[in-house]
Each structure stands twice: as C-alpha cells, then as structure tokens.
Amino acid sequence: MAHPHQQKLKISGSVVITANRLADGVVIHRTSEGQWSENLAGAQILLTADEALAALKAAQADGLIAVGPYVARVEATPTAKPGNLREKIRTEGPTFPLPSDAPVAYLPNEVGKVAA
C-alpha cells in the first residue's frame, strides 16, 4: 500500500475534506453526497482516519473539479466551523476590509499634522 497519505493520516477530532475549485479557485468542501459545496456548513464531517482517508482518495480522483484536496480540522457544532485561523480565513476571507475606491479615510490625526 504505497499511497503517500496512507501512513501519515492521523486525525484528532472532526475533519472535513477541503480544496479549491479548478476553474475559479473558490474554496470548496466535500459533502456527504460526494459533491462539493462552497459552504463549510454543508461539508461532510469525518471522525475517523479511515473515513477521512477514503474521502480524501475519492476527492483526489476528482481532478476536474477540485485542486489540492486536503484534510482540515473543524469544530463540529453541530455543522462544521473552521478549526484554525487558516481555515477561518479561507472560509471568511481576509481579516481586514479589502481596499476599495470608496472615499479614502485618513485617520483624523494625519490631516493637518506638520513637522515642527
């Protein structure tokens, strides 16, 4: 049994299979029907290494939809929530407002300040 993930896969707690979608890169998660969902809450929660490995293998076979599938830890409460900051950022986006062409807001103390 030479699959590279075989020996290594150890999980603790709940996990999901997550990936990015080939055509647009969007974050997707594997559902219990073997489909992919943009919504983490729709992901199949896996509790054992065997389950996770089987789902991962199936996902890896699915090279036309999902790129780089991997096992991600989640909080199951009862639907999946991101299990760490990386997954939280993948799910929710950057942790600051994205730049936009809305009027630029200087901090109040920046305007009118001059060197002595």
Binding site: N20, D24, G25, V26, V27, V67, G93
Partner: peptide, 10 residues
C-alpha cells in the same frame, strides 16, 4: 506564467 493558487482564489 505567474499564476498561483492561493487560499481564496488564483
């Protein structure tokens, strides 16, 4: 050709 796959997108 400069295309990465990052956390959220390409």
């Amino acid at each position: 050709n400069g295309v990465y796959l990052q956390l959220h997108a390409y």
